[in-house]
Design a protein around this nucleic acid. Structure first.
Length: 206
DNA sequence: TATGCGATTGCCT
DNA sequence: GGCAATCGCATAG
């Protein structure tokens, strides 16, 4: 057990902003985390994969904190989470974006569609490609595997922005809480894109 | 067993 | 700015 793992056994809402600035390293490619999203456990967050309980797919989220939860979606994309929650719960932190701080050449080779270096890991699926994370890394111990997390000192709150998630129904009713955190003004983050809503985009009518 | 859709991305208009 | 791609998982029957 490490101090870092102990740190990850707190609520995702507490850990998520603290992970900004931390480094995720796979082989020779290293990433500075600039944008994350917190997901809570069973019955707490309808948007969480673990909302409806444990399944074969999300079982990693139900294990100990400090492991990597990797899932496949849209038939083509892979995303990575840092399992983070008190024992007995099933939260996680989706790593949404980051800045490549080492292994830039390798990342560029993997992300050939990327036009700029700030695009290399701008988005959860792009990020896994840049780092070389695959489904086989699901369940990897972030402190004892090829995927490693180096937790940095927390950033000053003034440098952190967060997005509110409104109207989420919790066990006790609807609650409002921030779930997305990013480093203010960082060029590798795209906080202005509403990552939600695909077809039912609200149409403003005059 | 059958059907719908997603913690997205990139190309099209 | 809008939508197709693509398949495993979750839900309904």
């Amino acid at each position: 057990m490490t101090f870092d793992r102990e740190f990850l056994r707190r609520s995702p809402l507490e850990v998520a902003p603290a992970l900004l600035g931390s480094r995720l390293t796979v082989g020779d490619v290293s990433l500075r985390i600039t944008e994350v999203e917190a997901y809570l456990g069973v019955g707490e967050d309808p948007g969480s994969h673990s909302f409806r309980g444990q399944t074969a797919r999300n079982s990693t989220m139900f294990g100990d904190a400090g492991h990597l939860y990797v899932y496949f979606t849209y038939g083509m994309h892979t995303c990575a989470n840092i399992v983070c929650s008190p024992p007995g719960t099933s939260g996680g932190i989706l790593v949404r974006a980051g800045e490549i701080v080492a292994g830039l050449d390798t990342a560029r080779e993997r992300r050939t569609t990327s036009k700029r270096d700030t695009d290399l890991a701008q988005g959860p699926a792009r990020l896994t490609v840049a780092l070389g994370i695959a489904m086989t890394d699901d369940g990897a111990d972030l402190f004892a595997s090829r995927v490693r997390l180096d937790v940095a000192a927390p950033l000053a709150p003034a440098l952190i922005s967060s997005g509110p998630r409104t109207g989420v129904a919790g066990p006790g009713g609807s609650v409002d809480y921030p779930w997305r955190y990013w480093i203010t003004g960082d060029p590798t983050v795209s906080p202005y894109k509403p990552a939600k809503s695909s077809k039912t985009a609200p149409k403003p009518r005059a």
